[in-house]
Design a binder for these strands. Structure first.
Lengths: 112, 112
DNA sequence: GCTTGACACCTAGCTTTTCTAGGTGTAGAT
DNA sequence: ATCTACACCTAGAAAAGCTAGGTGTCAAGC
């Protein structure tokens, strides 16, 4: 049971999921679990505050609605959020490439 | 530049570098910078405490020596460290695959 | 002689992120 | 009635990494 090492990359994941269409928090958690094949099964206490943080940062906006007696807060990616997502995708690509270089002992860019 | 998102993956990087042969702290920092092509240019305040932590955890052992008037603490991977490295390599593989699945909208393992 | 920069180590405390551990409430099934 | 899934929330703990200092050696340049 392990999945608590997403440190620093949570924002990227959340923005990516919401970028495919507005979603409410609970749905974001489900989608993340589905797409990662259970690797990312995040507690609500992780996701809700993170969504609040992203909204505060201007990357997401939210609207309340009521569906079958349950209130939902649905998040939508803003344009600022879209550009942040682009940057963070690039950061992830750079970061993961660098880790792989370290693990594979090759300090050169993979030209392949 | 920027590359401060190695959160949670620092141990893996340090163990990997030391696994190629005993190294002292300063050399670890240099090696990491070289292999990552400057992506990981870590401050001493990050690396030294992390090495201490890894030694305390039994993953590294250290010996003091003196080279040209300068004292060095040289770290060696222990057998426990070697197995931890193996596990963390696997964790990294799983983690990065999961992130890529989320980013690429495919919840299935990349068979290609 | 003095200063600067690379080498080589260290720690205290700040900040941020993530998780734990609770809480509220609705709807539907047993 | 109770349980599970749905759907939201927050306070506080824990941990990681960074900032910003500190000590000391050696070699080069002024």
């Amino acid at each position: 049971m392990r999945g608590q090492a997403l440190k620093g990359h949570l924002d990227l994941l959340l923005l990516a999921v919401v970028s495919d269409g507005p979603k409410h928090g609970y749905a974001v958690i489900e989608e993340l679990r589905l797409r990662s094949v259970d690797t990312f099964d995040l507690p609500e206490g992780t996701v809700y505050p993170a969504l609040h943080r992203l909204e505060k940062a201007g990357y997401l906006s939210s609207d309340w609605s009521e569906v079958q007696g349950r209130r939902r807060r649905t998040y939508t990616l803003t344009s600022r959020g879209a550009s942040a997502l682009g940057e963070q995708r690039q950061s992830w690509a750079d970061f993961s490439a660098a880790v792989n270089h370290v693990l594979n002992r090759s300090p050169w860019p993979t030209t392949s």
